[in-house]
Write a protein that binds this DNA or RNA. Structure first.
Lengths: 221, 221
DNA sequence: CAAGTTGTCAAGTGATCAATTGAATAGGCC
DNA sequence: GGCCTATTCAATTGATCACTTGACAACTTG
């Protein structure tokens, strides 16, 4: 019954791909990479790991076929291997969010009870942009990510510069802030701050990767 | 920076869901469960594990929210928690099949080089059934699974009874055999046997779960 | 070509996981 | 109410994983 052994090996191979996703740190890396390619060093900074450790995680992801890399100058840039990878990550977190009460609780802790007000859906924002509705779209991600691609017409003010650049924002229009995805805290923080300061602000329900994956327009500077 | 700790915990929670998929044995269990609910004992038999071990795997899956269970009489029936679980499993194996050469090689070993001839796509078969084309649809899964749900008009002959029931098959029509999914060996085996015996036979590219997930009609006896 | 970055490898440690075994529940059925 | 059976729990063992540290490799750029 060598068949059993081969079947075992086949399903173990599928499991190896899943194993690459079975680490919170690697999922954080994927979540960042969904916003565009990054060097090892930058990634290490984003998720708070040592460079060596980050490199090892990236190699696990590469062996699973989830990311690819290219060298540019002195550094190596990693990126998602394809759109299906983002799709898999989205599906995984949707499923986890829907079925694990734990996730809901942790998400509330992390993102704050800031979420009282309904976020703006992708569809709603796309429609309002289409209709030339005068919504002010605010990209609160780091400037480099904005440069690599952003929503049409979005203005870049990284969240940590927001407090001292409030003057650049309109008080007579609704502001919609977005960042890297539904589990990125930047937009939540930004909306909280803006509300305190008397602005009319809501956040986009998810981030740039989902916008792009939905086939909506993305502008590159 | 307690934020970091909470973020870590949040992504670890997502990772726990992925971890449930990170075992070949658990994926085999999901693959069987995609065809309908099963008792622990039956599942143990299907994947060749001890009952105790199977039970433990099932509990990992349940804690991840991927399966649910219900008691009926003396035994406990497990089933997939929802259609997204099948979707996740499908996406995972598609991605692995596309990106890992290893999978391709193992699949060829397991399913045989039997795969030379083009399988019938779901769409093609659905269209031919619609058009009342005289295709003979053969369900080679165990009889119990056929009873729980099958393609419209499909005839049930479990693969291990096929050789002695060849008389029940037509020689003037194309036979399309299907089983549990693309990585189930039954249909491959069946087609190989039927060809040897001079029948015109092909296999459906995937199985009942995918057919059902695509929203196509399923008959219950 | 030499110096300096950036990224990777290798070895070690503590933690977690899969499977086995044997015992314990928990419900159904007489 | 008490046996029976299907399932689960608990304890153990060997394997695998995450992270650290320090050394090495690959490549750019002066």
């Amino acid at each position: 019954m060598a068949d059993r052994a081969v079947k075992t090996a086949l399903f173990d191979a599928f499991a190896r791909a899943a194993k690459a996703l079975a680490s919170g740190r690697r999922l954080e890396l994927l979540d960042v990479l969904a916003n565009g390619e990054r060097t090892v060093e930058v990634l290490a900074g984003e998720v708070g790991l040592s460079v060596a450790n980050t490199s090892q995680h990236l190699q696990v992801l590469r062996q699973a076929g989830l990311v690819t890399s290219r060298r540019q100058g002195t550094s190596i840039h990693y990126r998602l291997a394809g759109p299906e990878v983002l799709e898999l990550w989205q599906l995984l977190r949707t499923l986890a969010a829907g079925r694990l009460a734990e996730v809901e609780r942790l998400a509330a802790d992390y993102l704050g009870a800031r979420d009282q007000l309904e976020p703006v859906t992708r569809e709603e924002l796309a429609r309002r942009l289409q209709d030339r509705d005068d919504v002010f779209v605010l990209d609160v991600r780091p400037a480099a990510e904005h440069a690599a691609g952003h929503l049409p017409g979005a203005v870049s003010i990284p969240v940590d510069e927001l407090r001292r650049r409030l003057a650049e924002l309109p008080r007579d229009r609704e502001i919609v802030a977005y960042c890297r995805g539904p589990y990125c805290a930047f937009a939540h923080e930004a909306v909280e701050l803006l509300r305190q300061e008397g602005f009319s602000a809501r956040r986009l329900e998810d981030g740039l990767p989902e916008w792009q994956a939905a086939g909506l327009a993305v502008t590159r500077t």
